[in-house]
Nucleic acid binder design. Structure first.
Length: 465
RNA sequence: GGCGCGGUAGCCAAGUGGUAAGGCAGAGGUCUGCAAAACCUUUAUUCGUGGGUUCGAUUCCCACCCGCGCCUCCA
């Protein structure tokens, strides 16, 4: 089986390969930086990270663009409240976003693009739409005229014919000919920041940045566009209208959307008090790796029930995998090799890959890994695991970690290795002399400093926790 | 109301027309100076409910119940 992804456009699982055969051109809707991102946002970004990593496992190169929306109504309102320019205001949250993603080990896309750096490209695109008679102006704003674009709604399959003009009027809705029409360029209200353009001063509408920036970096047609399910309509539908309206070509081949997460079975909301940012969880002493594991171990197309029990389970599951890895790296095995173990590794590798190829079925992929871990641990215990089995087993974990990336720990300012080893030596002498009081004292002291000792028959291993 | 996703053990969760992966938690055991780690045994005669198709359904069909999402703020 080769990689298959569920394409929202066709509502089908489809075999994926990049249109140029080698490099995947991919665009992801990033955050709007009016506040810190929350774990729901991070679930979607973590999914994108898993997709990236697996695409690379499939042998593809990546050209991945993620936008940061750094101008919109909320940003303008908040910046005005804070008496700051929008760039002063957003700088803090852009920085926070980059820190969050780094903490969760999300790979940085090849390009991270700010909307405000691409206003010219947006203006050019709007101009192209205007030239094709797909726009109109009203009260200083420019709108996309859906009535002139056939095929509107092909992503959503939504019956928009029943929508009526004048239904809802929010603060930024002006006069539109058709309720389905959407703003490409919004006229500024008093005191609002604006850019000059051939169709008057204003700022970009919500959707135009993604069309302009994705096509600028990836071409008129590209392979994959990702985002959360809530973006399907209207955001992505409108991106299609803008892009295909301008180019006459198919905009995106695969639309891939991540489901939302719930917290303890409930929709995350500030009013329910179950609204979390990454730092809310780190403050409760959950590790970034456990959070990452929790976010990616449920397949992306399923609603993720994010729970604190799950976070604890993730912490322990990671610990188990790390213990196993350390065993493989540090223990001494008899010479030779067990062919059934080589076969078990090959099987696990295969199952892992097949699962990931099947629309990134991370849960199933994990199952394959844990099956092998139990199998190999049993063999190690019974001394049926040989030197010749070490390398391929470690390679399997390397494959696993190339996607999951939870096994390594951040090097930080802990008690240095030499000191730990000195303690271990002293403790070994004490144990030999049956001075268990001193031996336990040392273990407790190291434990206090975040080092756990594990005695095996002939040696003592240690690990940071 | 329209469109869509889902309901599998205490919790999370995979999966299939042929009789239920995996993780966590629980119980018992092996090993150990103690501990940790690891392993073994055990924990769903059953997959929201009721019908139907079938030799056989958790898996297909229909109805119903419940949860969630979208229907122009939204990952």
């Amino acid at each position: 089986m080769s990689l298959h992804l569920y394409n929202t456009l066709t509502r089908n699982l489809e075999g994926f390969e990049p249109s140029d055969g080698k490099k995947v051109h991919m665009y992801s809707c990033g955050p709007t930086v009016y506040d810190h991102v929350h774990i729901g946002n991070l679930r979607t970004f973590a999914f994108q990270d898993v997709l990236r990593r697996h695409l690379r496992c499939c042998g593809y190169d990546l050209l991945h663009v993620m936008n940061i929306t750094d101008v919109d109504d909320k940003i303008i309102a908040n910046a005005q409240k804070a008496n700051q320019s929008i760039s002063e205001y957003t700088a803090r949250y852009i920085d926070a976003f980059k820190k969050d993603t780094k903490m969760l080990r999300l790979e940085t896309p090849e390009h991270i693009t700010l909307a405000t750096d691409h206003i010219d490209a947006m203006i050019t695109l709007i101009q192209r739409l205007a030239d094709k008679n797909l726009t109109y102006q009203s009260e200083g704003s420019t709108y996309f005229r859906i009535a002139h674009f056939e095929n509107y709604g092909k992503l959503t399959r939504l019956d928009t014919s029943g929508m009526k003009t004048g239904g809802r009027v929010d603060q930024d809705e002006y006069e539109k000919d058709d309720i389905r029409d959407f703003a490409l360029w919004k006229a500024p209200k008093d005191g609002e920041p604006y850019w000059e353009s051939p169709f008057g001063p204003g700022r970009p509408g919500w959707h135009i940045e993604c069309s302009a920036m994705s096509m600028q970096y990836l071409g008129a047609t590209f392979d994959i566009h990702t985002g959360g399910v809530d973006l399907v309509f209207p955001h992505h539908e409108n991106e299609i209208a803008q892009s295909e309206g301008a180019t006459g070509q198919q905009f995106v081949r695969f639309w891939v959307h991540a489901e939302h997460l719930l917290v303890e079975g409930q929709k995350m909301s500030k009013s329910l008090g179950n609204f979390y940012t990454l730092y809310d969880l780190l403050d409760q002493n959950y590790s970034p790796e456990a959070i990452r594991y929790s976010l990616i171990s449920v397949p992306y197309r399923k609603q993720l029930n994010f729970t604190f029990d799950g976070l604890k389970a993730a912490t322990i599951a990671i610990e188990r995998l790390r213990n196993f890895k350390r065993r493989l790296e540090t223990e001494t095995f008899p010479e030779g090799e067990a062919s059934e173990l080589l076969a078990a590794v090959a099987r696990a590798r295969d199952q892992f890959t097949v699962a990931m190829d099947d629309d990134l079925n991370t849960a199933q992929a994990l199952g394959a890994i844990f099956d092998f871990v139990r199998d190999a641990n049993t063999k190690i215990d019974s001394e049926d695991f040989f030197e010749g089995n070490r390398e391929s087993a470690i390679d399997l974990l390397t494959l696993f970690d190339s996607i999951f990336d939870v096994l390594t720990m951040e090097a930080d300012c802990r008690i240095p290795v030499e000191e730990i080893e000195r303690f271990i030596e002293e403790r070994s002498r004490a144990r030999k002399n049956r001075d268990f009081a001193r031996a336990d004292e040392i273990r407790v002291e190291l434990q206090r400093q975040g080092v756990v000792l594990e005695d095996s028959r002939d040696s003592t291993h240690w690990k940071y926790v």
